[in-house]
């Protein structure tokens, strides 16, 4: 499965379009990470627990999008976009979407 965020895959020709595919996940933080982040907030800098949490959820959203594309019989997803929105206090939704296509 090839993923790109431009309108095409360089060097390959698109044979068929399947339209939009998407994957999303909503994650809440857990207490331990929140406590550690609260302490780190005093001196500032990177909050590693949150970085990992968001990377895990982004990987999950991407894999759901890829699964949907595979079910359609696509072998690439072009024009991939990521968005984040907070649905509740302490929980955020991560969405990945793109266009499923078949390459030559």
């Amino acid at each position: 499965m090839i993923l790109t965020n431009i309108d095409s895959v360089p060097g390959r020709r698109i044979v068929q379009h399947f339209g939009l595919v998407q994957g999303s996940t909503i994650r809440a933080k857990h207490f331990g990470r929140d406590f550690a982040a609260g302490l780190k907030n005093i001196v500032g800098g990177e909050l590693k627990g949150y970085t990992e949490l968001l990377q895990e959820s982004r990987a999950e959203a991407t894999s759901r999008m890829v699964t949907q594309a595979q079910e359609l019989g696509a072998n690439a997803v072009i024009n991939v976009r990521f968005t984040t929105s907070s649905v509740a206090q302490g929980a955020s939704e991560i969405l990945a979407y793109g266009t499923a296509v078949v390459l030559e």
Binding site: A37, K40, I42, G44, Y50
Partner: peptide, 9 residues
């Protein structure tokens, strides 16, 4: 690539 960063007190 992503990063979560905060300011100090």
């Amino acid at each position: 690539g992503s990063v979560v960063i905060s300011v100090d007190h």
